[in-house]
């Protein structure tokens, strides 16, 4: 018996719904992308506070300094063994501010210290920043929910 050879039918999948969903997902992820956490460091676990609410307006000239549990200072992406060693970064920030026609009083030092860091290390950092004439400080905490 002769068997008739049947050609496989070409199946066309409609890709439109999948592309629609992909674009919607893409748009969602693009919109929720935030660069605010760029200065966060995994070594720092902030203390929690029920009153810690994000500021309504962003700081004019924020300078973020971080204090690890063992007293290391992270400033400008570099680690320093103690607050005195980080003074060079603060001096550089001050020079940059002055070159841009701003004063140190415009800057706000944001301190992100680990919850188990020594209070004295944080105070030493504030003291060093004061020696470079910074006067405004913010202690950062995470929202307690």
């Amino acid at each position: 018996m002769k068997i008739k050879k049947v050609e496989a039918a070409k199946i066309e999948i409609d890709m439109t719904p999948m592309i629609d969903i992909c674009f919607q997902l893409l748009t969602f992820f693009v919109f929720i992308l935030s660069f605010e956490g760029a200065d966060q460091d995994a070594r720092i676990q902030l203390p929690a506070s029920e009153l810690a609410k994000p500021p309504e307006k962003s700081e004019d000239v924020p300078i973020t300094l971080q204090v690890t549990k063992d007293g290391q200072i992270l400033a400008g992406g570099q680690p320093f063994p103690n607050a005195d060693a980080a003074k060079s970064v603060l001096n550089a920030e001050r020079t940059m501010l002055e070159q841009r026609g701003r004063s140190v009083s415009d800057a706000n030092i944001i301190i992100r210290a680990h919850k188990d860091a020594k209070t004295g290390d944080v105070q030493q950092l504030i003291k060093v920043a004061q020696s470079v004439e910074f006067t405004k400080f913010s202690l950062r905490a995470k929202d307690k929910e």
Binding site: C22, F29, K53, P54, K136, S138, L139, R140, A141, K142
Partner: peptide
């Protein structure tokens, strides 16, 4: 899509307490 999914970082909100230390 893969890039945005992998770079997604879920963080808790952070807030500041202002302190003023006059010279």
């Amino acid at each position: 899509l893969s890039f945005f999914i992998f770079t997604l970082k879920i963080t808790t909100q952070e807030g500041d307490f202002n302190i003023t230390m006059p010279l």
